[in-house]
Design a protein around this nucleic acid. Structure first.
Lengths: 199, 199, 199, 199
DNA sequence: TATGAATGAGCATTCATTCAT
DNA sequence: AATGAATGAATGCTCATTCAT
């Protein structure tokens, strides 16, 4: 009698089993052979659950993204002002060693997107964009509602995300100090968007 | 006596001769054999003038960067207001087919920086950063001097560059409409930094 | 279930299939492409069974060494006196065309050991040394037991091997006549070590 | 008015100027460019004085050989008995750091001889052989004359040289302890060839 | 006599993916 | 459902030597 396996469940199990490997070795140095071994299955079996290597990496990165979103929402709640929330959100990837490894993986993923960019990857990136836009939107709306920042701030969602993307890239490419850049930007920005002053 | 060649000159000549190749094929698909052929020299000769393939790509990208800087300064002069200048500067890479190919190369270069990032590459990126910071600084200072924008705008240089980087990346990664994003950001931003209104 | 292959067996089969190639072309001129072709497999498959090219050469040389040892023991048995045995053993590599090709390969291997000498190669050479020391030891012991040679001869094992190595090298380097040198040495030596005379 | 240069003199000057380089880098890693630079001349000029790279290496090795011979003779004189002289002669290459570097070079040279062996190299090796045979011959003759060793020892010249060659090779190939091997061999040998005992 | 610019052949190795069993 | 054996494309780099000046 064959064991009935929930495909979706096994997918995640395989992905989980080698997520550490991915963080350690990076995408390029992760081989299908390693994946199969760490999951305790044959190489061919991997392809029963995933289309290709990219598919596996996707699964893992998606898991990380969900976790990241969860942490982001959690952290943001603990902050009082809109500025603090933004600071936390934009800076979340640069916190500690744990994040540094995830950041590295994310940068590697971005690099692949930059040169190979399959429709699937674009779709995934757009999905992330939406989620984060939503989070940023909530932060700003709340800030406006609480009278912390002006109505015009509403138009900054996309810019804040693009700024964030720039920080992620440049923290590697030019070695800028991410958290300092974020702080400085928010200081300047809040000088402009906070309520109650005349320029 | 032997023939004396101006090494620096020939370097540039070789780089020039295969820059088209680089734009067409991308970095990864550019082979030393192609470079040598397009320059009409032997493969070994290439290595008389360049350390390695990376070195060649660098030379070409540097040439493009210089050209880009020149065009940026030229375009900016033709604009009247600070907002227009910023729009031109940030949008310069997304103008037409000509730029699209250069943009692609730049994105590929960024991708490499994101995963391999040699000290030399970081140094180059920092150099670019400085140059562009200078240009942005001039634009903002002039805008402040002319009373177009508030003093606080001065603190936006780094943020504008990171935003620009984000647009370069996301125009590929998520397929956002670069020029529209830039326009929208500047509209919102100028709503905040222009002089003469109460929030 | 997938096909299970006896790895060790296939290793030897691949090695065997290109040993002729190795004898003909030498180590440096043996390419992986040739190996794959002669074994009727793909280049990649070669690497399923061998770490690298060196590993393949090792396998083949080891096979030759085993065969050499077998022949040596066989030949020695057919000889009556210790002197004859030594002569056969030391001269075995210089017999005929068959041996000349193997000798050439061995010399090439020695050359590599002399400049690159990986631990693995040293280990292999020590293994050979042990085996041959054992054979020489047996010959001498029997000679002593039979009263052909004096007790002190026992101390000559290592020297005989080093002499043999010297002959292998010099037969190529200075073109000395190997068999004549061996004969002359043994004549002199036996003059000294044979029993029953006063110097 | 052209400067008259003694070709032979300049040859030696060039060779001398890069002999240190040769000891440090080995034959394979010594480039013509380095040679030219260290001699303060152009690459092309090197070929005015030498046929090819091999020719240069030859010149240097010849210089070393002459020096080695000088040292050998000097050392030997300081020894009293034939056994001591042989020990000094055979062990001379394994004395100290100075010798270790020369030994390495010599081994590399042997390796080349083993696979490429040009007539010129064979000739050189034969020349060395003759010289050293002469030295060994003198040692043995003197020993015989002084009644230290028996007449038959005269036949050991070639064997001693081949043994020596074997030690040079195996000190690298199998990592044997050269000086110990030499001592052990000579102990055993002198047990056999010394005068005044009955086996 | 001196130079130095130009040359170009040659090859190991990796690993995602397939598919016969 | 699971497997794992087989595959093969694709490329940077070195350096001794030559010969035009």
């Amino acid at each position: 009698m064959a064991i009935i396996v929930n495909k979706e469940e096994k997918r995640r199990a395989i992905a989980q089993s080698c997520s550490e490997l991915l963080l350690e070795n990076g995408i390029d140095n992760l081989t299908i052979a390693q994946i199969a071994q760490s999951a305790g299955i044959g190489k061919g079996t991997v392809y029963e659950y995933f289309e290709n290597k990219e598919d596996i990496v996707f699964e893992i990165i998606t898991l990380f993204m969900i976790e990241f979103e969860r942490r982001a929402l959690e952290q943001i709640q603990s902050a009082a002002s809109a500025k603090e929330k933004l600071q936390l959100f934009l800076g979340l990837m640069f916190e500690d060693e744990f994040d540094r490894r995830h950041l590295g993986l994310y940068q590697e993923y971005l690099a692949i997107s930059l040169v190979q960019g399959t429709p699937q990857m674009v779709e995934f990136s757009l999905l992330c964009r939406e989620k984060f836009a939503h989070i940023l939107g909530d932060i700003l709306e709340l800030g406006i509602a609480k009278g912390e920042i002006c109505e015009a701030s509403r138009g900054l969602i996309s810019a804040l995300m693009l700024f964030g993307r720039g920080v992620v890239v440049d923290s590697k490419v030019t070695g800028i100090e991410a958290k300092a850049e974020i702080a400085q930007f928010l200081d300047t920005l809040f000088e402009l968007i906070k309520i109650g002053e005349v320029k």
